[in-house]
Design a protein around this nucleic acid. Structure first.
Lengths: 217, 217
DNA sequence: TTAATTTGTTAGAAGCATCTAACATTTTAA
DNA sequence: TTAAAATGTTAGATGCTTCTAACAAATTAA
């Protein structure tokens, strides 16, 4: 296990490289709210530790070792969130910041007990999959809402951003996990999506929002 | 709130200054496993922040502000321990290291909910009092076992050391919170104490151990 | 295809918590 | 009451993570 800072870098690299397998220094700097040279020197350090593969002016990729570390942190974060919601009965939009701290707790005993109390759950309160002890993720074939064709009805499975502002935004639109929605129109121009839910209300989501919502057909 | 390091210094100062109201640099260094100059510079820092009052070659004392901070951390530590034992059903001897990490979690929501789930407890699993939100400690007139006279029967209330090795030691001697013991003999020479428990077994405790066990007559 | 823009790097400094080595003060014991 | 021992301080260095300023490479647009 590395330092708290290293853990945060690795977690962010994992999140941001999900789509293409790599991240750019500038994306990471933005996400972590640090300047480029900070990312640069941390990449040298994580490179030396074999957590990332990194060459100057090239994208950053996690090694197998780095991925394992990332999955361990993500497991703890998601178990913590589910624990806070299910056992401690806090709201799903308020648990992120607490889980952000709990994910760095170093104790197998603690996390295995949480896992047990929750009966070995597969997904967190946002619908995101929880890696098991070995880093294995429940395999599914979900797609982002932004990738669904017009006229197709889908079920909301998960959201890939658990910041309060985002969740409040979804709550205000009446969007919840498990709900079915029909993709009525997709604007080619800006990627925004118009949905109809079961109460026949139309609502518009920007591309930015739609790509953070995971659905299944 | 200060840094994690500052919090640990303040907590240790509080614990070590319980008896006399002050601590020496060397005691603190030993407890925190750092060298004297590290303590020295941290005292300058905490002095500047008005958390401790400190003059060169003199003892270290917490200010009112420092005490408030200490009690807030102790509250979180003890609530965490009780939560881990009562709600998560972990053993009292294994929760210390986890609580040591949880005590630094910054979330009123989290700790107030724990307090609520435990029904606003007054003491932790070791019998130590839990300060309330305002830092108030349940007032009692307990004494250390090392201060009990020969022939007196007392009830064990608390232990003031929650490290695994200490608790294992007590468990192995068959000593538990709530139990009654008779102080059969006190050695003037080394301060050791011979006890008889209800099953009439004699057992000897060193002074070092006896002074960490709190009892009431 | 050159110039402008965006993106990334290096060098050097700063704050934090720690250390070792050298020195100072206070306490204890001869 | 002086010498020895114990305790505390200062100075200066190190590793960690961050920063600004200056420079370099890659991409984009004229």
């Amino acid at each position: 296990m590395g330092s708290l800072t290293e853990e945060n870098y690795i977690k962010s690299i994992y999140a941001l490289s999900q789509a293409t397998g790599e991240v750019f220094v500038s994306e990471l700097a933005k996400k972590l709210a640090v300047k480029l040279p900070s990312v640069n020197s941390m990449m040298k350090k994580l490179g030396a530790k074999k957590m990332v593969s990194y060459a100057p002016y090239k994208g950053i990729r996690l090694t197998e070792k780095g991925k394992k570390e990332a999955l361990s942190i993500i497991r703890k974060h998601r178990l913590a969130e589910l624990f806070l919601v299910k056992i401690m009965e806090l709201g799903w939009e308020e648990v992120h910041d607490i889980a952000e701290q709990l994910e760095h707790v170093d104790s197998n005993r603690f996390y295995n007990r949480i896992d047990e109390m929750l009966n070995y759950p597969k997904v967190d309160p946002h619908g995101e999959p929880i890696p098991d002890i070995n880093g294995k993720i429940f395999n599914d074939k979900r797609i982002p809402l932004s990738g669904v064709n017009e006229g197709v009805t889908v079920r909301i499975l998960a959201v890939s951003d658990d910041k309060k502002s985002f969740l409040d935004h979804l709550n205000s639109k009446g969007l919840f996990i498990g709900e079915k929605v029909l993709v009525k129109r997709k604007e080619v121009y800006d990627g925004s999506v118009v949905l109809t839910n079961k109460s026949k209300t139309d609502l518009m989501l920007t591309h930015q929002v739609a790509e953070r919502i995971w659905v299944e057909v």
